[in-house]
Design a protein around this nucleic acid. Structure first.
Lengths: 206, 206
DNA sequence: TTATTTCTGGACTGTCAAGTCCATTATCGG
DNA sequence: CCGATAATGGACTTGACAGTCCAGAAATAA
């Protein structure tokens, strides 16, 4: 899948080096954006040379693609830890609390890694856009699974569209994360969760 | 307020020229972002020369500040047309329909001009961030006014915090606009409105 | 050991972008 | 009409950045 595959074979050391570069690049891009992050920045922060970057990646776009994959995976993992075992409405609040703590603890939210990328390059690169949409869909499918679980055990109205409900929840979170990043306050994200969970609660069976 | 003020005085022609440059720059930045829009791009699209840009603006940041002001004002005006005279819940649906039509008509949403700017530069320039936050607050105050109107005429529970409710609505819209831009579909924005209005509806008095 | 391949260092190139400078043309006030 | 000032054209400088190239170090397999 990756352009690298046809070039060389990576050793264990190479795999680790590559992962470190992607990790560092993801951090820089998260805080400064794709355009504002130069390869020189990545080199300096990861203590690597230009040859290394072009040994592991065909160009900057390739590196960015890897960063998107990493952020999508990380996002998936974080939410999966809390959404996978949802059986009651209270579990949704636990999920909310965990995410809220995570973002407030990190000294003011820096926004959603995936959302930031979406905003910046979904209009520039179609392949990147598709890749990010896939990340969102994976995330959304986790929420769908949680909704279906609630429907299955009689907590939630089984006639409503779990997919649309999940999409709305994701929309709320994205808005909350963007506004929290902008206002440097966790409040918007809190309001987003409250609204999203209340939205789900509208279809709760007593 | 603007850095230009201390330099020269603008004639009517100069004011028009300056406005045209800001307008063109706003369009380019809206579709490509701040970093990806060069002054050469602005020159080409507005048929101006470099001297003109530096005659009307001290530097690129100054131009960007003007673009932010313009977009904040435009956003304010668009929503004001529909929110200023809200007296019933049905008026909120008219507002939703108008905005939805506006974004779907433009061949796939390009996102919120203010939200896109917020995402890209709120982490880079503190002054820009503050300026954008002010734009959001003005927008939010329109929603607050609409909520207060509904509370005043007995449509909405007067004990709830109109400010928090408005903030949640704004969060939903931002999320919807971002997701619509990313997925190239109006659906997320529709879901955002539906959720936001339902959220308001929870506090409606029968 | 030795041949082969991966991995790394860093100098170098070409391009593009921001910002400067100066000359020239339009416009305005008196 | 005529100085002063605003408005414009465009060449030029400087720096940053993506991408190239080649030489050498390290590891791997036989």
């Amino acid at each position: 899948m990756s352009p690298r595959d046809t070039e060389t074979t990576l050793t264990a050391r190479g795999i680790a080096m590559r992962a470190r570069i992607v990790d560092v690049a993801a951090g820089l891009i998260y805080s400064s954006g794709v355009e504002a992050t130069s390869l020189d920045d990545v080199m300096a922060a990861s203590h690597t040379s230009k040859s290394q970057l072009y040994h592991y990646f065909t160009n900057k776009d390739d590196l960015v693609r890897s960063v998107i994959s990493l952020q999508a995976q990380r996002t998936f993992d974080v939410h999966n830890d809390h959404l996978a075992a949802v059986v009651t409405m209270a579990d949704l609040h636990l999920w909310r609390d965990a995410i809220l703590t995570m973002y407030s603890g990190a000294g003011g939210s820096g926004g959603c890694p995936l959302g930031s990328l979406a905003n910046e390059i979904s209009g520039q690169s179609e392949t990147a856009r598709v890749q990010i949409v896939a990340g969102f869909e994976a995330w959304q499918s986790q929420i769908v699974r949680a909704m279906r679980a609630l429907q299955a055990n009689g907590t939630l109205d089984p006639t409503i569209d779990a997919s649309e409900l999940a999409a709305a929840v994701l929309v709320a979170l994205q808005g909350g994360l963007l506004m929290s990043k902008t206002t440097k306050s966790v409040k918007p994200l809190e309001l987003a969760f409250e609204m999203a969970i209340a939205h789900i609660g509208r279809y709760a069976l007593t």
